[in-house]
Amino acid sequence: MKRYFGRKILIYLLTFFLAVTIDWMIPRFMPGDPVRNMLTRVSVNTNASAIQMMYDYYSHLFGLDMPLWQQYLSFWKSLFMGELGISVYLFPTPVKDVLLRAIPYDAFLLVPSILLSWYAGNKFGAFAARSKWLDNTISPLSYILTATPYMWLGILLAWFFGIVLGIFPIAGAYSFTMRPNLSWNFIGSVFHHWFLPFASLFLVGFGGWAIGMRNMIIYELEADYSHFLGALGAPKKLVRKYAFSNAVLPQITGLALQLGVIVAGALVTEVVFSYPGIGYLLLAAIQNQDYFLIQGCFLFIIIGVLLANFIIDIAYILVDPRTRRGMTGETA
């Protein structure tokens, strides 16, 4: 048990190290120069020597005048001290603050849509597996939903409910005319803006889970242990219960993967609905060559993916005895 976790944690640490290194490299090897970019955007001064002075000043401030290996070391050093640097694009806000402002929106949008679609999709899939009528209606619908490119579905929803019917806003996290405050009015506006991006994520997820669950259950109902129970006259209820608890295992892995790509998946949603989460931020950071913000966003994604996987690893040990056996290396 201890050895198993020791090995796992080592693998996670290695992965973290490699991923963060790549994260550091990507913006630096992107074409373009962030400081010059910023200066051309903000400065009206055309004096060449003044610009050069400012350029040197900012390069030094961001540590971009150091040799690459020094930049790399100081990057790790500040990371350990919890420093993510200062955003170039939103200068002088620290990257940490920019991220902390965006994260609640992601959590608010993604956690409910992923968990609810997982739950509802699995429930419906299991249901569809035992009713011909439901199977004939829900399954094709689910296939259409998952086969639809997400971008397309998002835009379709935004167009239909936002523009044709005009009952939902299609940009922002709350009304542009409001300042965040604790009033019913504001909370209502937040939910109103949240609904369409949420619904689009929910629908796509739901279709995928429902199909997966339906197919898994049908497979498990044909498994030998199901037939044995049937031959011993066990009621359908028990057979289905066993099939369900076996079928749900791969769905748990699937959930881990989903939670892992949470941010990547949301990137498109947040862009389509101009929703100010990490995904939206990442796009802005890339467009503005904001090294530190890009790094910060990716760091967030990396930690999210690893954490989700780790949690699922543990959950799996709890629900599937077969992994437990592999872990201790016992042989029967």
Partner: peptide, 30 residues
């Protein structure tokens, strides 16, 4: 009639037990 009057040790006996239930618990539930 199944189980009480007529029962079977199937050809696939090696896979006949639910892999994610302890054997005692499975028997109890059955």
């Amino acid at each position: 009639f199944r189980f009480r009057d007529i029962s079977i040790i199937p050809q696939y006996a090696m896979n006949a037990l639910n892999p994610i239930r302890k054997i005692g618990r499975m028997t109890e539930e059955l």
